[in-house]
Amino acid sequence: MSRGGRRRERSEPERRCIATGEVRPAREMLRFVVSPAGELVPDVAGKLPGRGIWVSARREALERALARGLFHRAARMRVALPADLAERVEAALARRLIDTLALARKAGAAVAGHDKTLGWLESGRAAVLVQAADGSPRERERLARRARHIPRIGLLNAAEIGLAFGRERVIHAALAAGGLAERAVEEAARLGGFRVSQDRGEDHPAGSPRDRRQTDVEET
């Protein structure tokens, strides 16, 4: 603690992307490690043992690192690069977001379904709106109009959101303010580098290349 009893803010760790050279907070990037078998492994949770290799959480940055052999250079050895590495990263990031939603549900900090989500939006309890990318555009827009002031996540499909709530499909969900809502927004931002949001009626299917001038976690 600093003088006066105030807790001193810890500086957030930053890492440099091997593909772009940009330096960003580690939580916004992707960590990779080399397995004992010599294969490159995505470590989206940042907990695997070994020396970390960092890449910006964008598909094009990962593809650049692969095309230019930058992982071999960073690892100082030849490493096995899975042909479906980008797809593995996307799947792992989607799983992280789903797990975060599930934790929020178990903590009583999330609701699912049109009526409950609408109720949270009207009462001001909703801090994040989550909507399925494959839901009806008209129905999504009706609720989105009530959530202009909060982040909106439109990256997961109905079956994926359903996994978080123990249902077959979920189109609409809301998160209450708190650490899990903040984590969901952060995880969605990373997933947004690999999967296109349908939140604003974009024509691109989920997972297609995206225009980096757009954002998949909106806050207006």
Rank of each mutant, 00 (worst) to 15 (best):
E22K: 14
D84Q: 05
D43F: 14
G69I: 00
R200W: 09
E122H: 11
A188I: 07
L93N: 06
C17T: 02
I150W: 01
A158M: 07
R24Y: 13
A67Q: 13
H114A: 10
G207E: 03
R95E: 12
S56C: 13
R73A: 15
G52F: 06
A158D: 08
L70K: 12
A112K: 03
E160Y: 00
M77F: 02
R7P: 11
M77N: 03
R96H: 09
G38K: 11
G166W: 06
D199S: 14
A102T: 00
S11E: 14
P42D: 02
R59L: 15
N157D: 10
I150L: 04
R142K: 15
E22Y: 11
P151L: 00
R88P: 01
P13V: 07
E187A: 15
S208C: 11
V185F: 04
P209V: 13
F194N: 02
A61G: 00
R95I: 02
G201P: 10
A107K: 12
A83D: 12
G179C: 10
V34D: 13
R145N: 05
A61T: 00
V44A: 15
E219W: 08
R213K: 13
P151C: 04
R58S: 12
L156H: 13
R138L: 15
R73D: 05
A112L: 03
A109Q: 01
H149M: 04
A37I: 04
T20H: 10
A144G: 02
A104T: 01
A102E: 04
E22D: 15
R145L: 06
G207R: 01
L93V: 08
Q214H: 13
R212G: 08
D203W: 14
E141A: 15
